[in-house]
Design a binder for these strands. Structure first.
Lengths: 337, 337
DNA sequence: CTGTTAGCGCGTTCAA
DNA sequence: TTGAACGCGCTAACAG
């Protein structure tokens, strides 16, 4: 008593339509000429049996697939999801199927890499990550096209899409210095490679190297709203802010920082200034609204995926392998300049 | 001049190790006995060639795969990403590979369904969606296990995971009525099936059917922060709030509503009350903090995926096919009760 | 225009 | 313990 109805194969369609499987294959793929009448026979058989070709078998036969691997560290950040959304949309437009590979840490990353290779994807988009150059090499060694988002370090012979948060940040810091800022604190995740933060600190330091009066500090802190909020509520009770500027690697950090002060009756940006990076909706929801570097997150994902599809179909001109999207400083109400 | 290095096959490993491919297959899968010495030979060959078995071919041979389909409408909502994160984590733990299928609208949904079937996944998790019962039937017709999240409508013979937002909402409305609320406005997306909103309105109406003094209204509005914020900033200018209660299907809507009023100098909850549903971080970031029904979003995804894995390995007891997670009313500062 | 046949890379009998 | 042969579902020559 085998109750399990299983899916129809191309053979069954062929038998149903009284033709050979080659003919069925032809009408499915629209290749080669086939008599309209027999084509209709085949089509009828297909709908009758509810036949849907197996991409697995098709992939084996053609040594191709419509699979694209997306490699991400944990997806629980709003801005990563924006990037992901961009990738997914483009993926769908071009008819590719996105396989998601997530990992927790460096060791886990290697497992993810092997899993990607086993899955027989046509290409890969890696979001700025904890992957090592060696990991990425595993891909290129077998001629697997790779597009990296937001991490120059990995860009050996791979395509790269990045956003230039550094320039607007640098300009902003310059303006702050000119405006007489005395102290700048850079708030960041202990896990330095995570948030495309490469270049942030460089941008700040580049401005500050000509100006030794400005105190610069780095603060590593768990990058989650609640812990930061609670930390600064306590902190501000004993450390009265003194017009310093906080630069935060994510808007959520900025939001926590602003709320902590405001809840204690402090004034932003009068007592201290806060700058967010990424420019997600958080910056507009906060009161006062957060000044931030707005990165084109969705576009970052979309461009990366589009670049990959180009690499898969045509050959991309060499100078097109790197694409840096501009970011923009949006002045709102947590900064003075 | 073929420069393309392509991946090694099981044949090449076999040749390298001077054994047959059957032997290689055995050491890979740990099945059947194989001499430790020859096994080592094989393992060496594998590492030397960097061989990674093709899941595609393996899938064809075994009629199985490690692929699981996740069907979602757009990933551009925070709370959906929470659910997705839960699914992905469990997916990884059990060694399955998640394929993502997103779609825009009802027509697009059918394309997605066919794509899922073509991709030869072992099972499917569908988030409460615009799929029709007929779509889901396409899956069950070919004995494909399906778990549906948050939509009873689709639950014909499928596994279902849901969150009971209705009960705490009902209790809350009861308390509001007892407290003398005069008007309740239910804010929702025009696309009614989207946000697991099934049952919200029912919960409200069930309380109100015994109480004809309370005015009940429904307001359909684009569910995005900015439009709602702007709409209500204008609206409140000419329509002074009169202690009514707004129930919002997502926290973002609530956040917009609160900000609009507060920016105009209105007081929440004195001038009007706001209730959010979902309980994402928004509710704690807003000032005043938003009272909300906190749904176990991550768990929703995790449970659904776990349920699917159970269905794939063992047979699940019939009464375990439905799992309803409790939601909780968290009183914060935008409501009076 | 249509059918036959040989793989794609791997797992799995069945013999040896 | 090992190897040869077949099949998974499909595509792509090659004949007819």
């Amino acid at each position: 008593m085998e109750n399990k109805k299983s899916r129809a194969t191309i053979y069954e369609v062929a038998k149903e339509a009284n033709v050979s499987l080659a003919t069925v294959s032809r009408v499915i793929n629209g290749k080669g000429n086939v008599n309209e009448e027999t084509a209709k026979l085949v089509r009828d058989a297909i709908t009758k049996l509810g036949y849907i070709p197996s991409d697995q078998a098709r992939g084996l036969a053609t040594s191709m697939s419509a699979n694209i691997g997306i490699v991400l560290p944990s997806t629980n950040y709003v801005y990563i999801n924006k990037i992901l959304a961009g990738m997914l949309d483009v993926c769908k437009i071009y008819g590719y199927r996105p396989l998601l590979f997530t990992y927790e840490n460096v060791e886990d990353a290697e497992r993810a890499v092997d899993s990607v290779i086993a899955s027989r994807v046509e290409g890969i988009v890696i979001f700025n990550s904890q992957l090592e150059t060696a990991d990425v090499k595993k891909f290129t060694n077998i001629s697997l096209p790779v597009v990296v988002i937001g991490n120059d370090r990995l860009n050996e012979r791979n395509a790269l899409v990045n956003t230039d948060n550094g320039t607007p940040l640098k300009n902003f810091i310059e303006a702050e210095v000119k405006n007489g800022i005395k102290k700048i604190i850079f708030l960041r995740d202990p896990n330095k490679d995570w948030h495309m933060t490469n270049g942030y600190e460089d941008a700040i330091l580049e401005v500050l190297k000509d100006n030794k009066q400005v105190v610069y500090e780095t603060k590593e802190i768990k990058d989650s709203y609640i812990p930061i909020y609670e930390y600064y509520v306590e902190y501000f009770k004993t450390h009265k802010p003194n017009h310093e500027l906080y630069v935060c690697t994510r808007d959520t950090l900025a939001h926590a920082l602003v709320n902590a002060g405001v809840d204690l009756g402090l004034k932003v940006p009068d007592d201290y200034e806060v700058m967010g990076i990424m420019g997600t909706k958080d910056s507009r929801k906060c009161r006062p609204q957060i000044s931030s570097i707005k990165a084109p997150l969705y576009d970052l994902g979309a461009y990366a995926m589009r670049m990959l599809t180009k690499m898969l179909t045509s050959t991309l001109a060499a100078d097109k392998y790197i694409y840096v999207l501009p970011a923009e400083y949006i002045k709102r109400n947590t900064t003075k300049v």
